[in-house]
Design a protein around this nucleic acid. Sequence first.
DNA 1: CGTGCGGCCCAAGAT
DNA 2: GGGCCGCACG
Length: 688
Amino acid sequence: MTPPSTATASPHAPTPTQQQAIDHGNAPLLVIAGAGTGKTATLAQRVAQLVGSGADPTRILLITFTRRAAAELERRAGHSVARRLGRPGHEPALSLPWAGTFHGAGAKLLRAFATDVGLAPNFTIHDRGDSEDLMALVREELRIDVTRRRFPSAATCMAIYSRIVNADEPLAQVLRAGFPRCAEWEEALDTLFGAYVDAKQAQHVLDFDDLLLYWAAMLADETIAPRVRALFDHVLVDEYQDTNRLQGTILRRLKPDGVGVTVVGDDAQAIYGFRAADVRNILDFPASFTPAASVVKLETNFRSLQPILDAANAVMADGTEGFAKTLTAVRGPGSLPRLVTVRDEAEQARFVAEDVLVQREHGSTLKAQAVLFRSASHSALLELELLRRNIPFVKYGGLKFLEAAHVKDVLALLRFAHNPRDRVAGFRGARLVPGVGPATAHRLLDAIAATGATGEALHALDVPPAASAGWRDLATLCAALTTSTSAWPRELDDVIAWYTPQLERLYDDADARAGDLAQLRRIAGTFPSRERFLTEMTLDPPTATSDRPAAPLLDDDYLVLSTIHSAKGQEWRSVHVLNAVDGCLPSDMATGSTAEIEEERRLLYVALTRARDRLTVVVPQKFYVTAQSRHGDRHVYASRSRFLTARVCARFEETAWPPSDAATAAPAAATDAPRVDLTRAIRAAWRR
DNA sequence: CGTGCGGCCCAAGAT
DNA sequence: GGGCCGCACG
């Protein structure tokens, strides 16, 4: 048997540079940590060092990019503390109550200070989809004529609004830089956003951006800010290159003199520009304090074999914005990474499935292997192939469990019970009653808003005869939920019991969906209260859809499929990267500006540097394009990704698969057929 | 006013 | 190939 899995911390003693970061005192510190340089281990040991020398763990704010990363850091820091105390193996269960994401910490702080800052303590949190729904509702109420000249969709409006908040830029500038097509609507958008903010406040809801915005505002108010600052002695932020301007503001306001602040990151791995992350945060960090923060650079890579690193370095060396940084491996030589050409995506799926099995024969468990791709949809054919061959897998990123309509329905009912003013939740819930359409739902919610009607009062509302029986049942359910005689998580059983008939009425595949609800019920059982469940599900939703294995299966071996974004911070013994062609990587959606293209390049860099021993990049030559229906389905020949330059390719062993067909399949055929730039072809097909 | 159906537009990454 | 909108029917 092979050792369990992936994220094996380098159990080496810290290098002198790492030690320097671990032992650094209270003055502000920036750790520039290249891929695989032991960043997480160093951060964990720094936390352990702080606690070991007397810091109170409940007064450490540890910001990570995901909650999963927070848990990992907590675990490793716990180990280190145990080692220091000479009790290795005895899990001291170091508990860091303030470890989590910026949004998670914001939610917790705002819940704690709600009444002090004019928020209702029972506020509910909207995820991106809810926010778009509310934006659409507000737009409707303002009677902005959507059809006249293509007013931006609710999703686009939300994206613009979110950018304004997170990048702290005025509307006009956001429109100019990112949404030029919407510039003509500047005035209407301004009105819309004002009304959107009013609606959120009236309904006691916060969106993702508010969790940061209110936190920042709290720290700008000198009556409340000292109380917030007084909570934390140390603030450590991981993945600092992917924070946005608003988050930078929060950090500076939280610790104006930088005492107790540590940030860690790598500008070469900045991949969240689309979410308003600004690499200037990390670049300007040292100079934003007097005296300037210390900088420690970790450049020794413990993860990958040298040839893998050579390939990754070559990708970055082509970059136009380079802060040239060359990682050196300590693990020494190995075989070259492979650049494998296959005929099309179906062959790609076959190749990867087969190769994964071959590597398992050679001792890599499935868990020690990952397949990475730019977009969640890129793995569709591979997923089919894996199912066909009974190869278990878990997929990270892409469409979430929570985005399924039936799961949203159930959560909306719970949210409505928690906060009856949450109109998006109430609207969704009301419409589940047969006979209640949009118009009736609006009327009912107006009545609820006017009277503050909850529980029993819902019975008194005037509903059309056709809907009255159904409404009575829903009102009874809501009354039970608000009086909360039924304890958590049992009340979810009541919700599901009420919802099941609707499920069967609304969907053909009710059985499969009922399975998801059972899954939801299991997850609910792991949270202490309805409020915590709703908050956590919104801020940190479960990662996979119904193929997510149930708890016992998680001990089994499974292959990891992940978007590159979701693979951040992870490592595997073997990594396959799919669709290294223009249009996929870089995505044809992201070739508008140099900055976007450079971010795509860093994305490839992140993908390559996840591999420890074996790296395989796959290039399908042919893509089937179904969109151009006028000509029927046809294929185009894809160009290999622009990032795979001659310099980069020289670092790979180039092969074709399957080897026997190589002569007939690829290169010969390619010369006959028209060679088309996939990017151009796809863009042209959708040009407005 | 609700619901079902056909045509049309769009297509990423995620706290 | 899927989700949304508008229209026609009940």
